[in-house]
Amino acid sequence: MSSLKPSFRNVERGHRSMKNNAGFGMIEILVSMLVLAIGLLGLASLQTTGLTQSAETRNRSQAILLADDMFERIRANRDSINSYAVAAAGTAPTCNSAYKVANTDVVADDIAEWQNSLGCLLPGGNGAVQVNAGVVTVDITWNTNTGNSVDGSVTMEARL
């Protein structure tokens, strides 16, 4: 019957090895949480950069469309092409959502409506039109809130 006696020697060895590993699982969890936190911070940074670039792309597209709008206005009224030359305003035009065309002079109405569109569609949007021997140059600038006075600009030129 002595051979049926359980051996406690192996059980004690297993118990001692468990004591040596105590807390190891907690360290693994903390390290994995640290790696996860760093990954989430990287993802948040990527999202912020994507939103900023998306806004900049929208502003650049609006500026190109506004420059094209001015070219089309001039093209529709070629007889008065030299009257469309306008310098950029000292301060950016403000947006007037209730703007109505005065219907007094086509050129003056076109310029006033275009400048109102600059103020409404671009942050701090401003523009200038230069006419030189049938070549029209449209310069548009805007702010992108990076701290610089003028952050974005588009210059387009067309022979009309």
Rank of each mutant, 00 (worst) to 15 (best):
S2Q: 10
P6V: 08
P6G: 08
R9H: 08
N10R: 11
V11Y: 03
G14L: 15
H15P: 00
R16F: 09
K19E: 13
K19N: 07
A22D: 07
M26Q: 08
I27L: 14
E28G: 13
E28V: 08
I29P: 06
L30G: 06
V31W: 05
S32N: 04
S32M: 10
S32E: 04
S32L: 12
M33G: 07
L34W: 04
V35L: 15
L36C: 11
L36V: 12
L36D: 04
L40C: 08
G42W: 01
S45N: 04
L46W: 05
Q47P: 00
T48R: 09
L51T: 10
Q53E: 06
Q53D: 05
T57M: 11
R58N: 08
R58I: 09
R60M: 11
R60Y: 04
R60V: 05
A63I: 03
D68V: 00
M70G: 06
M70V: 09
F71K: 04
F71E: 06
E72L: 13
R73W: 03
I74C: 03
I74G: 05
I74K: 05
D79W: 01
D79P: 02
S83E: 15
A85N: 03
A85Q: 12
A92F: 04
A92N: 13
P93T: 09
P93N: 08
S97M: 03
Y99S: 08
K100T: 15
K100W: 00
V101A: 11
N103A: 15
T104R: 09
D105A: 13
V107H: 07
A108P: 06
D110G: 03
A112N: 14
E113C: 00
S117R: 15
G119V: 06
G119N: 07
C120H: 04
L121M: 07
L121D: 05
G125I: 02
N126G: 00
N126A: 02
G127K: 01
V131H: 02
V131F: 01
N132H: 02
N132Y: 01
V138S: 02
V138A: 01
V138W: 02
I140M: 08
T141E: 12
W142K: 05
W142M: 06
N143W: 03
N143Q: 15
N145D: 14
T146M: 09
N148L: 14
V150P: 04
D151G: 15
G152W: 04
V154M: 10
M156P: 02
E157I: 12
A158D: 07
A158T: 14
